[in-house]
């Protein structure tokens, strides 16, 4: 009987990580940024109907970069998890922390057990109620989870974007207009092209809204937000 080739665990993990990273870097980027009334999400997405940003729960949103079928599966699972929890307990018991943990577990398990890792990077964002701080969790292909403050970027040239934004974003009290302008400027600079309102998917978690805080911002609205200076 022929023995299977021996591959050291280090080598196997490194190969998987490299594979996943490559897949994610091929895609386009998404930015999450805190602003005065909540959290802004901006995705470079030429499709008007296939979303990368989605409502998750009353105060929570999801953004996924990488392979569409994979992050879409995660998105749906997250909504089921959140709705089930809200139904079994109460709406206020659904938290981004618990959701991010579930994502981390799932993605991490796939990374170590399955032959092919998930080529995804996701953001779970929660807007704080009243005085509570906003929460931004970034979860990578290997299940590692990073609690981001202020700004976060995933997919495509995420690292370059983060470097660009970290220097320019200063305070969570920026207006929506300024936050949107800075996000688009960052995407334009890093991809070295001019992105129009029609290739952007923009949404906010607006803490001033009662109940479900998620709201999509239409291309027309983006246009008028950017025009008035």
């Amino acid at each position: 009987m022929a023995l299977p080739y021996y591959v050291s665990p280090e080598q196997m993990m490194a190969d998987k990580a490299e594979y996943a990273k490559k897949g994610i870097a091929k895609g386009r980027s998404i930015i999450a940024m805190e602003y005065a009334d909540g959290v802004l999400l901006v995705a470079d997405n030429p499709s008007a109907s296939l979303h990368k940003i989605s409502e998750m729960y009353d105060r929570m949103a999801f953004a996924g970069a990488g392979k569409y079928n994979e992050f879409e599966m995660l998105r749906k699972a997250g909504i089921r998890h959140a709705d089930l929890k809200g139904y079994m307990y109460s709406r206020e018991d659904v938290t981004a922390k618990s959701l991010a943990n579930a994502y981390s577990q799932t993605i991490g398990t796939v990374f170590s057990n399955d032959p092919k890792p998930l080529e995804v990077e996701i953001l779970v964002v929660e807007v704080g109620e009243g005085e509570k701080l906003n929460e931004i969790y970034r979860i990578s292909f290997d299940g590692s989870i990073i609690d981001e403050r202020g700004v976060a970027a995933i997919g495509g040239k995420a690292e370059a974007l983060m470097a660009y934004l970290k220097n320019r974003w200063s305070t969570p009290s920026v207006s929506l207009k300024e936050a949107l302008r800075l996000s688009i400027e960052a995407l334009d600079t890093i991809t070295s092209q001019k992105l129009g309102a029609d290739v952007l998917e923009v949404a906010v978690l607006d803490r001033t809204r009662p109940g479900r805080t998620f709201r999509r911002i239409t291309p027309t609205e983006i246009g008028s937000l950017l025009k008035v200076s």
Partner: peptide, 17 residues
């Protein structure tokens, strides 16, 4: 496992059942 359920469509009622 939590996130690897077979798909129960878009109905929460069916999912719950």
């Amino acid at each position: 496992m939590l996130f690897r359920d077979d798909d129960s469509g878009s109905s929460f009622y069916d999912f719950l059942l």
